[in-house]
């Protein structure tokens, strides 16, 4: 048991070390959210009148969504790197070591989630620029939610990584899974009174619950929540557990 925990820790630590050593990646990965927020967001805010969002302006509404987006992409791609790593990289070394596949999967989920959480936290630091006050309590609450969302996404990433075989499938997944997940999460527009199919489909999207949990906390406005915080958290935690078990099973089975 202790050996397995050390295994989890090793996989996690390696991801964290790599992350902090790769400064260009940290800076590069902040480019997209900043572009979305300050270019797309400002553009939309100044050309359209915004009626959702509990009376706040569009940039503020969008801000938690962009944090969600950062967590989504970072977490997902960290988890998916397991495919690449397995064929050509460090993972082969881990696979032949005396630790179980389950420990590898857990370590990878935790590593990806930690990195995604850090990336999300960096975006959160931009809040004062948008005149959104962030107290310590809010900050740590958001960190917690982000970590759970990241775990959900990372676990989904592991499941997909265990099923797909080629790097080419990455593009397909980005276009047909990640982008729809992002658009149908409530990150960019409220999902309480859009067209009916969108409302329905969005409820099957784990990121939807993540955004729904973060937005009222970050903007300190309970009117923005579609479901109570506890319900969002229960949904996310359940998906995480199911996906982790499925991921560990599929990954162990794979050769």
């Amino acid at each position: 048991m202790k050996k397995e925990l050390i295994g989890v820790y090793t996989i996690w630590l390696r991801d964290i070390k790599r992350y902090f050593r790769d400064k260009p990646r940290i800076i590069g990965s902040l480019g997209q959210p900043i572009l979305f927020l300050f270019v797309l967001g400002t553009g939309i805010a100044s050309s359209l009148s915004f009626k959702g969002g509990g009376g706040g302006d569009y940039l503020n509404f969008m801000f938690p969504g962009i944090i969600g987006m950062t967590v989504l992409f970072t977490s997902f791609f960290s988890a998916m790197s397991i495919v690449w790593d397995r064929e050509f990289g460090f993972l082969r070394e881990v696979l032949v070591a005396p630790i179980s596949r389950t420990s590898i999967v857990i370590g990878k989920i935790l590593g990806g989630s930690t990195i995604a959480m850090i990336q999300g936290a960096i975006i959160l630091l931009f809040a004062p620029l948008l005149k959104i006050p962030i107290t310590f309590t809010v900050f740590f609450k958001v960190i917690g939610i982000m970590f759970l969302v990241a775990m959900t996404i990372a676990a989904m990433g592991i499941v997909l990584a265990s099923v797909i075989k080629s790097m080419q499938a990455f593009q397909v997944i980005t276009n047909f899974l990640l982008m729809p997940m992002f658009f149908l999460s409530g990150a960019l527009f409220p999902l309480n009174d859009t067209v009916k199919w969108m409302n329905v489909v969005s409820r099957a999207n784990p990121l939807f619950y993540g955004i729904d949990a973060m937005r009222p906390v970050i903007l300190d406005n309970p009117a923005l929540q579609l479901y109570p915080l506890w319900l969002d958290m229960v949904v996310l935690a359940s998906v995480t557990v199911v996906m982790s078990i499925l991921g560990a099973f599929l990954f162990s089975r794979q050769e």
């Binding site: 070390k17 050509f88 990289g89 082969r92 070394e93």
Partner: peptide, 10 residues
């Protein structure tokens, strides 16, 4: 292994 399996960022 046949293919490199070191972590080159470490």
């Amino acid at each position: 292994f046949q293919d490199p399996s070191l972590d080159d960022r470490l």
